[in-house]
Nucleic acid binder design. Structure first.
Lengths: 198, 198
DNA sequence: CAGTTGACATACCGATGGTATGCGACCTAC
DNA sequence: GTAGGTCGCATACCATCGGTATGTCAACTG
């Protein structure tokens, strides 16, 4: 049962992040104490503070994990097609479905902006799923599918729309709501490549 | 200096809510202690707990105040016209401008969903600005300006888009971003009444 | 194998949200 | 108008929690 130090370090940090993720997702950041987390892994606060600067730093690691998983699912969905437009719509739909996960809900969308100050949260979100969204939009503009326009505002409008929709869907009881939302989102996206007739 | 008890009660609660709002908006909910709040008003925690069940209840009252102000501004903007479509767009634009207020930012959009559990926050937001949005959409469907479709998903998509856009605009340095966002939002809204040509 | 570093545990502290209780000003009933 | 009750608030206190200081034993390094 001899373990190398590097492996031991990786094991404990991973265990802490995993346990923290479970508790944060279930009860919310504020309602989870560090004692709850370390007890669940059979460690003490000394171990936690050896690997993380403070509670927020541990939460940061959890958010990184969750966001990377969401980003992976979005990318996987987008890569199923070569057509930039289909990649955009597929990515958006994949994001909505991924956000149905309660972990994503509470950690990424509810506690994330409040615990990490909003700017830091935005930076992380940008680096994860937001990145692909703005890239997809840029590509569509470049190839002339949607008209020339500033990308940043559009990215935030769409990203915010999907975030809020995901939160709403989480507590919705009617299964139809998910489909209705995807349809409504598709309509909005479609409007980009069928600009209004003036 | 005799005050009736009812007035005294109203005065102190109002003072507490006002002071709490200032501090919550400036430093965020978690960073403000109850001692900070009562010191600023010249009272003690005893007074606070006589009027509010706990810290979250005080925050709830603050959110109610902020949301009612935002709703008032939205309604005022919407009432300038009789045309349902103009009332929708004017309301949306007014919401975006109202959300530029740092109080609205931090309290309503960042801390709100995390402190009040999301469902409660959503209920309050629904009762305030969200109400007018869905009513406006319903009216437009009824009069045939936009096609028949489920209202709830659309409401949440648009509401989320504006919330996120407001947060982004708050830390944006370029003044043009606000105008660009309003334009982009108008495009999305316009797509509702100029459905895609199939 | 000696000395150092790293991975934790233990013990402790200050701050903070929350509670129990006491007191004086106001209000009501007679 | 005054006695008893209620209300508005202060004081004192408690438990918990995030964070720190320090000790200890295993693992690495020369």
């Amino acid at each position: 049962m001899r373990r190398t130090k590097a492996q031991q370090r990786q094991d404990t940090t991973h265990a802490l992040v995993t346990e923290a993720r479970t508790l944060f997702a279930r009860h919310g950041y504020a309602a989870v104490s560090l004692a709850d987390i370390v007890d669940g892994v059979g460690l003490t606060k000394g171990a936690l503070y050896h690997h993380f600067d403070n509670k927020a730093a541990l939460f940061h690691a959890v958010v990184e994990q969750v966001q990377s998983e969401v980003a992976a699912r979005v990318v996987a969905a987008a890569e199923t097609s070569d057509d930039p437009w289909l990649r955009l719509t597929a990515g958006c739909e994949a994001f909505l479905r991924a956000s149905a996960d309660p972990d994503v809900q509470q950690i990424m969308l509810v506690d994330g902006p409040a615990i990490l100050r909003w700017h830091e949260w935005r930076t992380m979100d940008e680096a994860a799923s937001g990145q692909h969204l703005s890239e997809a939009l840029a590509e569509l503009i470049e190839q002339g599918t949607i008209p020339e326009q500033p990308i940043a505002p559009l990215t935030h409008l769409l990203s915010g729309a999907m975030n809020e929709a995901a939160l709403w869907l989480a507590q919705s009881t009617r299964p139809r709501d998910l489909d209705d939302t995807i349809v409504a989102l598709s309509r909005l996206l479609d409007s980009l490549r069928h600009p209004k007739l003036t």
